[in-house]
């Protein structure tokens, strides 16, 4: 177990180094001179030269790269030129709102998705199964922003029972979290359904029945855990992808998280912020993947053994 963690952490460090390098390259390769864009069309060439020197952009590329890596290690991505604050702390400050949103969505997706998937997969071909499948397909095919707007129209405009924008109370969390959760719920439900249905056909399920267990005991005692193994992976990987959905949802609902910050930063070429935020997201995704691997290995003894050897 320890060895597995150490191994994955080492790989993680490599991945983060790769991510930092890609960010570095993209910012340099992007069209337009950062200093003149930051200063706007009114700046004269002396001001531009001055800022270029301050940003270190006049140095050779490898020098820039090394000093950039040094900064990355200290998590120092410079300042946000627009907000005038240090980039990383600014991103981190907004992160808690995003984390709140993502956790709420994941909780909804896992609880609702697992329950629906289990009910459907226990009896493939039943009415429950067909209803769940239809709902899942529908949920997955609607774009997130459209679902968000529909929910606003229904619950905020028509019924007036939930706030449509902003943060500050648990009520504010509901609509954005549900919007973000819906496609994820569908993924979890479908995957759980498939896996439960497949697991219920395994020979060891028949063995469990031959011990006199009821269908419920068979389902919960033998099929559930084994069908969850692949689901855990998908949930873990999907949580990384949830960051992408969060960017959309935060903008639709004016949710003050990293997602809306990134959109601002990108449209304003606020490189410090963009770099800090992308690096952070890469880090978060990596941590999710690590945790996924560990949970997976705990659920499946065959993996546990392989990982230790």
């Amino acid at each position: 177990m320890i060895r597995l963690i150490v191994k994955r952490l080492l790989i993680g460090v490599l991945v983060m180094w790769g991510a930092a390098s890609v960010i570095f390259l993209i910012v340099r390769v992007a069209p337009g001179d950062p200093a003149s864009i930051m200063l706007g069309p009114d700046a004269d060439s002396e001001q531009i030269a001055d800022l270029t020197a301050r940003l270190g952009l006049d140095k050779p590329m490898y020098v820039q790269y090394l000093s950039y890596l040094g900064d990355v290690v200290r998590l120092d991505f410079g300042d946000s030129y627009r907000l005038g604050t240090a980039a990383m702390p600014t991103v981190l400050e907004r992160l808690s709102a995003t984390a709140e949103l993502m956790l709420a969505s994941t909780a909804i997706a896992v609880i609702v998705g697992l329950t629906l998937g289990l009910l459907a997969g226990a009896r493939p071909g039943s009415i429950t199964d067909r209803v769940v499948s239809a709902i899942s397909i529908a949920l997955q095919s609607f774009p997130t922003f459209w679902v968000g707007i529909m929910l606003i129209l229904i619950f905020a405009q028509a019924l007036r029972i939930l706030p449509s924008a902003g943060a500050g109370s648990p009520l504010h969390l509901i609509l954005p979290a549900v919007t973000l959760a819906l496609p994820f719920t569908a993924v979890v439900a479908r995957l759980t359904r498939t896996n439960v249905a497949e697991t219920m056909r395994e020979a060891y399920i028949q063995t469990a029945r031959s011990k006199g267990l009821s269908e419920r005991q068979v389902l919960l005692g033998h099929a559930l855990r084994n069908s969850l193994i692949p689901v855990v992976t998908v949930v873990g990987l999907h949580m990384g992808g949830l960051m992408g959905g969060a960017v959309v949802v935060e903008n639709v609902f004016a949710w003050p998280g990293t997602g809306s910050l990134i959109v601002d930063a990108v449209s304003n070429r606020d490189y410090g912020l963009v770099q800090a935020a992308t690096f952070l997201i890469a880090g978060i995704v990596m941590v999710f993947n690590l945790v996924t691997d560990l949970v997976y290995s705990q659920l499946d003894p065959r993996i546990r053994l392989d990982g230790a050897s």
């Binding site: 063995t207 033998h222 084994n226």
Partner: peptide, 8 residues
Amino acid sequence: LAALNPTQ
């Protein structure tokens, strides 16, 4: 092998 639950 198939008759035994692999995770227990």
